[in-house]
């Protein structure tokens, strides 16, 4: 059942620090089980590099179950590699063939500066959430959970959007380096729910405007949706756009801006 791939050539981006120039370096992996995950292949390579006295390749990863959103690799020009709806950590070597050449690059965007090798800093996402990606509900004051019935379709739609793992593949894949899918997924999640209505328009305004400080603009290519490991639909972008419009026009007076 388990086969081995032979002669894999890896072209991996090495960069020693945020302000250093980087370059591609080639590595050969002579043999690897097709049961190995892509990151395990990198582990294997790293162990060899350490044995050879070289510095291991730095890459972000943690849960390896496709849910924490830490892994972030541009594999052969695709965010998270060739498998649909799959984060880098869940990609397996059986998707490749013997003799393949695989190019691995970090996410690239102004808002995602490279930390080292393949690792980038995605704090800009946190800044967006901090600006409004929450429902203000201090601990202790919550009413009974069943007080507000939420229609199942509404709850399901909110859940579809809430699945975002914050990996940044949307930004990485976007030809414009835009973060609209990430931002809108959170806006859609909270703005669809009854609990989120009180801050609905303040939220969308704050989040969209914070996003603007870091990222490019959406021109509706749809690359983000195709790269998203959770297959979040660009419908959420339309929803956020509509809410931003309403926040700016219809609710300008109620917002009491100063």
């Amino acid at each position: 059942m388990s086969n081995h791939l032979k002669d894999i050539t890896l072209k991996i981006w090495r960069q020693s620090g945020p302000n250093d120039a980087g370059h591609f370096e080639s590595y050969k992996v002579d043999e690897i089980s097709d049961e190995a995950s892509f990151l395990e292949m990198l582990d294997y390579l790293n162990e060899r590099l350490i044995n050879e006295g070289q510095e291991a390749i730095v890459f972000d990863h943690d849960c390896r179950e496709g849910i924490c959103g830490t892994c972030s690799l541009m594999i052969n020009g695709q965010a998270h590699g060739p498998e649909r709806a799959t984060a880098s950590c869940q990609l397996h070597m059986r998707k490749f063939k013997s003799g393949d050449s695989i190019t691995i690059e970090p996410w690239r965007a102004r808002a995602f500066p490279i930390v080292k090798d393949l690792m980038v800093d995605r704090s800009a996402f946190d800044r967006i959430i901090e600006s409004g990606g929450f429902i203000t509900s201090p601990t202790g004051g919550a009413p009974d959970a069943n007080l507000i019935p939420i229609p199942k379709p509404v709850s399901d739609a909110a859940m579809d959007a809430a699945q975002c793992i914050g990996c940044g593949a949307c930004v990485a894949a976007c030809p414009n380096g835009a973060a609209n899918l990430f931002t809108s997924a959170k806006i859609a999640h909270l703005n669809l729910l009854p609990q989120g209505q009180a801050e609905r328009f303040r939220r969308v305004e704050a989040m969209v405007e914070t996003m603007d400080e870091y990222f490019g603009s959406c021109t509706n290519h749809g690359e983000c949706e195709a790269a998203c490991p959770k297959e979040i639909s660009i419908d959420v972008i339309a929803l956020a756009n509509a809410d931003y419009r309403k926040a700016k026009i219809k609710n300008r007076k109620q917002l009491a801006r100063n």
């Binding site: 509900s137 004051g141 919550a142 009413p143 959970a145 229609p151 199942k152 709850s155």
Partner: peptide, 20 residues
Amino acid sequence: NIIDQMVAQGVPFAREYGGL
């Protein structure tokens, strides 16, 4: 209290068709 708190924060727990 945890369930109340998390629902108030917008955690989309599974619901019945009646909304509960």
